[in-house]
Design a protein around this nucleic acid. Structure first.
Lengths: 151, 151
DNA sequence: TATTGTTATACTCTATAACTATA
DNA sequence: TATAGTTATAGAGTATAACAATA
């Protein structure tokens, strides 16, 4: 049948060009994990960025707002509303630093600690599901390769 | 010196919790590659999404707009303005499909073909730079591991 | 009825520039 | 003069719902 040169509607879409690029696969895999995060941790009212901030503050109690953003590659200007959101929800305590009155020292509240623990558990379950096709060794290798190209 | 419990300003920020998660590393690596893409291909007026569409159309001349979006996980509604942009810039030709008059058949214009070639070359250079710390075998392994967790 | 593309809309993430208060 | 945080704003990616034309 002539289809006037149109692409075969029943055919498989080719991705030859994109397939050879690492950036393309990173983009797809990352977006898949982001979707999994939304499904599993979203019901706790958490987004990836917000949870990232919580964990950094968990690991570094009293950290300055700017330093927390720096660790996560979030710009100062964008940290403001994100931290506000966490403070408003009672997950983070923000007080003026005693060593530099320009700065804020961030710490988790008890509610914040609880939410971090709940989130971690859900992320673990989610990642185990998404990575089920990889052996533990392959999974380690993936993390190792990725951390070597992060910067 | 007492700092009232504040985080040591000169200390290294810990990322213990995040570090164990694949999703976190994917997010960082992907964002690094996206920045590299912007730097190298951005001057051609290309963004990752737009270039993705061009390559899919290149690989599948006459493909329906919706099928192209599907291959890239772009929703129908969001394809409209993206394809408009490419058509307005003379990179893609959009004509009513001869086999289904509801659909558009997409194809690259000569200018689109040229831009794809230019873009591919720049992406190659960029990826070689970002992946310089990996051996060819490790690079292949990374792509292989990533494609196994994409879907 | 189902599907293709469209419009309208909203939320989030990211980026820049100009401002304030403290250092 | 430089730094920490703020405000305002704009661009881009992504998501949903309702609609018209066609199958």
């Amino acid at each position: 049948m002539s289809n006037g040169g149109d692409h075969d509607a029943g055919g498989v879409t080719q991705l030859t060009l994109l397939d050879s690029f690492v950036g393309y696969h990173l983009r797809r895999a990352s977006s898949r994990f982001a979707a999994g995060f939304s499904e599993s941790v979203g019901p706790l009212g958490m987004r990836q960025v917000l949870f990232g901030i919580l964990t950094v503050v968990h690991d570094n109690p009293g950290i300055r707002q700017g330093a927390a953003g720096e660790a996560l590659s979030i710009q100062r200007a964008n940290m403001v509303s994100l931290v506000n959101e966490l403070v408003d929800r009672g997950l983070i305590e923000r007080r003026v630093s005693e060593v530099d009155r320009r700065a804020f020292a961030l710490a988790l509240t008890p509610a914040g600690e609880v939410l971090v623990e709940q989130g971690l558990e859900r992320i673990r379950v989610n990642e185990d599901a998404l990575l089920r096709t990889l052996s533990p060794a392959e999974r380690e290798q993936l993390v190792s390769l990725l951390s070597r190209i992060e910067g």
